[in-house]
Design a protein around this nucleic acid. Sequence first.
DNA 1: TGCGTCAGTTTAGAAAATAAACTAACGTCA
DNA 2: TGACGTTAGTTTATTTTCTAAACTGACGCA
Lengths: 157, 157
Amino acid sequence: MRWNELDQEPCSIARTLSVIGDRWTMLILREIFFRHRRFEEMQGALNITRPVLAQRLRKLVSDGVLRKVAYQSQPARYEYRLTDKGAALSPVMMALMHWGDTQMLPPGTERAVKLRHCSCNTQFDPVMTCSACHEPLAPRAVRMERRATAQPGLTQP
Amino acid sequence: MRWNELDQEPCSIARTLSVIGDRWTMLILREIFFRHRRFEEMQGALNITRPVLAQRLRKLVSDGVLRKVAYQSQPARYEYRLTDKGAALSPVMMALMHWGDTQMLPPGTERAVKLRHCSCNTQFDPVMTCSACHEPLAPRAVRMERRATAQPGLTQP
DNA sequence: TGCGTCAGTTTAGAAAATAAACTAACGTCA
DNA sequence: TGACGTTAGTTTATTTTCTAAACTGACGCA
C-alpha cells in the first residue's frame, strides 16, 4: 500500500494517520498547541527543513486541521490556527504526551510540559475513561472489535 | 533536526514520536491490538512492504514496545506481543480512532471498529478526563505549559 | 524429490527528506 | 535612494528512505 491510499481505508485509525501519521505533522501541531503559529517560529523551534514545513502546513490546511489567518497585510502574512477539527486532536496530543511522561522518562526526571485544566485551574494528568461506566480504562481492559462486514485490504483469513 | 535525534528532546511528545511517530508504526500496532501478531499476518493485512515491516518490528522490540514470543520451534517462529509499555499505548490508539470516527467519517457512516470495555462489557467511546476534577476535557479547555527552564532546540524568543 | 509455509533479506529503482541558497514583497534606517 | 532586515516561502542538488519484486533458508508434508 502506498501512503496516499491510506485515506481510502475504512478504518478510522488509518484515516486519522493519513492526516497526522507522518514524521513531522504531530510536532508541527505540538507547536501550534504551544501557540507558535507562524512559519519562522515553527521552523526555528522545530529545526524542520523549510520545504517539509511548507508542504505539511499546506496539507494540514487542506485537511481542515489548520486555517490560515491574516495577521497583517502589505505584505500579506498569515498564521496558522487550529480549526475545531484540529482542536479535537487534543486528546491525541495529551495521550502521546502522557505515554512519554510515564514510559519514556528516566524515573525522577521532571516533566518538560505540564497540562492545566482551565475550568478547574489545576495541573492534571489526562485519564481515558469509559463513556458507559465512567471508570478509567485499564490498559488491557479494552477490546477492539472489527465490524463483521467486508473490509477490503484489512480482513484476515 | 534529523529524525533520529528526536529521542534526545526533553519533550515527552517528541520522545513518544521518536518511537511511534513514523508512517507505518501505528498501523503495525493497530494490527497487534487486533491480535494479528505474526509477520505474514501483518504483511498481508497492511500491505506493507516486507523490509519496512521487518525494520519497524525490530525497532519496536528494541524500544520495548513489543516482545518476541516463540509460538513453535523447528523452525523457531516468533510472534510479536505488546509489552506493558506497548499496552500503555492504548489511550493513544483510542484517541486516534475516536478522532477519525468523529472528524473524518462522512456523517451517517457506520464505524468500522468498535471498542468494548471488558470490565463493564459495554461498547463505549473513549473520554479523556481531568485527573483533578474528573470532568471530561473540552477541546480548548487545556493549556500546555512548558517548564521555565532552558530547553535547547525548543525555546522561543 | 518437489511443493508449500513462514520470516525474513537482497537488490534496483522511485519517492521523499535534507541542506543551503535563492526569491519576493515590503519596511526601516541613514 | 539604496542597503539591509524580516517573513514566508521555493529551488536545486544530494542523501536517505521506501517500494516492488525476487531470493534465502529452515522446516513440514506427500
